[in-house]
Design a protein around this nucleic acid. Structure first.
Lengths: 267, 267
DNA sequence: ATGTCTTTGTGAACGCGTGCACAAAGATGG
DNA sequence: CCATCTTTGTGCACGCGTTCACAAAGACAT
């Protein structure tokens, strides 16, 4: 999961906790499915199961929005869909630009999830002149030079960065300067932005590494080896380097069987 | 950010808090960059800035791994890279299968981040017979029928689901039955898995909706309208439905200007 | 109208994560 | 060998998020 907003972490927007906001889309999705099946009402228990959360948590989440349920009955599906949509700002149109139309950018442009709920791909932008004019997902790619104009002309406030890591900060700066205030970052880099700009990141590599951690832990438990005992024990903390500002340490460890790191999109 | 593990939320693995584990890949990335520039040591302050976190948090995180720093000096870059890699289980090889080779699956297969740190794409799997044999990112796509065999033969324990939402649970079940214990889910669905299986999800649609929420809030603050006053006020909670088990509610609201929801990959 | 039954909404307790602030550790210089 | 300076490692307090458990609210039957 793309995790973690970068700025204003504790801002508790209008009384709705951040954790609750992050779950609203989950509820909305489950409710939409119920709505399509013409289910009129749903209990907190049922909906919680569908959304994969605890029913008490769901009720508390909804309590931040107001009292929209009926005791003894449950929640009116259609009404709740409307309320959550409104709260999330999905009743209005959000034009979005995608910068970096490589494999990932193209996949995002083709992703149906964009169009489904208020989001509209206003433009695809790439730095490669050869891409210019080429249609992707039915939308012609435009060159980076047009970035500022596109954003101001269309009143875009949400940008998606799908460039290589090296270009991300630069693109980010231009987006912000052009008036973008929300960024979804797929590049494996930490973006620095001024206050008032929200950044959320989606990082495949990080997710995999977290899974690997738990996977290793599961494997380690089975063998019941406290991992300190058998096998190659890690080397001692390396003799505290001689000169702090001396020659670049050419030795010091490097015993780990790491492969070399490729140039593009490093972990 | 792909957020939220699904099971064993509070398991506090071997004393390392979940929040810390989620940040280790961030530190590792920053450290790798330093390592490539042959920087011998780094202070908590510098590294924290590079990773985009608080220095106190970083020090506390590292304290869970052990005392790897030198007071008055900082941390040895190479040694820390090794320690974190080992802790995350990146010193070993993790074969990974990607199921669902559409736009997104292809993008993932081409993603350099896979190969960079211990992860190796063992196989690409798709349900479409027309895809079978076709090479993507240099790897021939195999048919879903081979799924179980591929997993057991290669000892795969991590699976990536990039299928449409409708197929995700089914694929998930087969993966788990075949021995997969960690899943990275890109499909917009809640997956249910047995205990002992970790699921992390990456959901573009959710991320966008969270951004929209904050975006709306920013816009609302500027106009300084408490949003309750002007414009179309939401309808009253709908007259408490007549018959709870009666005819499917054909009215009740529907006043929101939602577009219709496409069939594939709904929000 | 009254009683029973279901389900919501929430007060309260608890645990995790974060950040402050400082003591301890070690390097460095004289 | 001692003083000073830098930077780590961590005790502590605080706040957010989660969960329990229950009273209040309403539906429904009689």
């Amino acid at each position: 999961m793309a995790t973690g907003r970068t700025h204003r972490p504790a801002t508790r927007s209008r009384g709705i906790p951040e954790a609750t906001v992050a779950r609203l889309p989950l509820y909305l999705r489950a409710l939409t499915a119920l709505s399509e099946r013409s289910v009129p009402t749903v209990s907190s228990e049922e909906l919680a199961t569908a959304a994969g959360v605890n029913s008490a948590k769901l009720r508390k989440d909804f309590s931040y929005l107001g009292s929209y349920g009926t005791r003894g009955v449950g929640y009116d599906v259609e009404y709740l869909v409307y309320q959550i949509s409104r709260e999330l700002g999905l009743t209005q149109d959000w034009p979005v630009v995608i910068v970096g139309i490589g494999n990932l950018g193209a996949a995002l442009a083709n992703y149906g999830g964009f169009a489904s709920r208020g989001f509209r791909v206003a433009a695809l932008i790439d730095a490669d002149p050869a891409m210019a004019g080429k249609p992707v997902a039915g939308i012609p790619v435009q060159h980076t030079d047009e970035l500022e104009k596109i954003i101001t002309d269309n009143g875009v406030s949400i940008g998606v960065i799908a460039t290589p890591a090296g270009a991300a900060q630069q693109v980010c700066d231009r987006l912000v300067a052009a008036g973008i205030t929300s960024i979804l970052n797929f590049a494996p880099t930490v973006l620095s932005v001024p206050d008032g700009v929200d950044v959320r990141k989606v990082d495949l590599s990080i997710e995999l590494q977290i899974l690997a951690f738990h996977e290793q832990r599961k494997a380690g438990e089975e063998i019941a080896a406290p991992e300190e005992a058998a096998g190659a024990v890690p080397p001692p903390p390396v003799a505290p380097h001689r000169a702090p500002s001396g020659a670049p340490g050419a030795d010091s460890g490097r015993q780990g069987p790491d492969g070399d790191v490729p140039a593009v999109m490093p972990a």
